[in-house]
Nucleic acid binder design. Structure first.
Lengths: 119, 119
DNA sequence: AAACTTGTCAACCAGCTGGTTGAACAAATG
DNA sequence: CATTTGTTCAACCAGCTGGTTGACAAGTTT
């Protein structure tokens, strides 16, 4: 498992079951059994999903008797948000720039023929 | 390819090469050849990567002579941002709530013994 | 100590992924 | 029309992924 942190986070959230678990954990900590309840898969499969989320840093597990409460970690989200915002903003700016060009274009200029008004 | 949109986007960005391409495209449109230049893989591999990005809605391709300029689409980013913000905020609020509890706790209260300060 | 609860580890399997090569298609150019 | 340029399609392969089952470790309960 040598992937960079960002790849691990995106990859972890690429699975709908895992995103669902994150949604559940946003409401509060939960045990593996509690998390497994809604899904029609083995407990082992859920355990694996949690390992993926943990390796991505999205989740942490403590020990409490024989239970392993799972806790959502908010910090890692920032890693994604930072990356996304960076490029979204760039793409949007370029878009807006084109928008300005179109807005500034006089109404009587046809896109196909270019400016051709009488002198 | 039956995955939901959100899974497709996260999955597409889980690959560092693909994230790199998005970064490149944030600077402006590019052809497949231009995008392939920095990487030591076949053009076909790059073409596949672009297909993944396109299927995720992160990118669109037009036609211009025999070239296929690739364009970054900003809208899809919002899908992710919305999802992330929703759960990040929830997790942070729960965190902050605990923070408030700790902050409101009188200094002379030991966590293990409970309140025992003089009246 | 025995039994039950909670969860993980290990081995296995089918299907997806990212890479390859070779052929083919599309459009401009000689 | 033949060639070159730009890109995609098809078949194949190794490795990862998400699922399974069986064994077992750790802790609690009786």
């Amino acid at each position: 498992m040598a992937a960079d942190p960002l790849s691990r986070v995106f990859s972890a959230l690429a699975d709908p079951t895992r995103r669902d678990m994150v949604a559940r954990l946003a409401l509060g900590d939960a045990t593996v059994n509690e998390l497994a309840a809604p899904y029609d898969v083995s407990l082992q499969a859920v355990s694996k999903h949690l390992k993926v989320l943990e390796d991505a840093g999205l989740v942490s597990r403590s020990r409490e008797a024989q239970r392993r409460p799972v806790h959502l970690e908010a910090q890692v989200f920032d890693l994604m948000t930072k990356w996304i915002e960076r490029y979204r903003r760039a793409a949007e700016q370029r878009y807006r720039r084109l928008d300005d060009v179109l807005a500034a274009m006089p109404d009587d200029v046809s896109p196909t023929t270019g400016q051709e008004g009488p002198s």
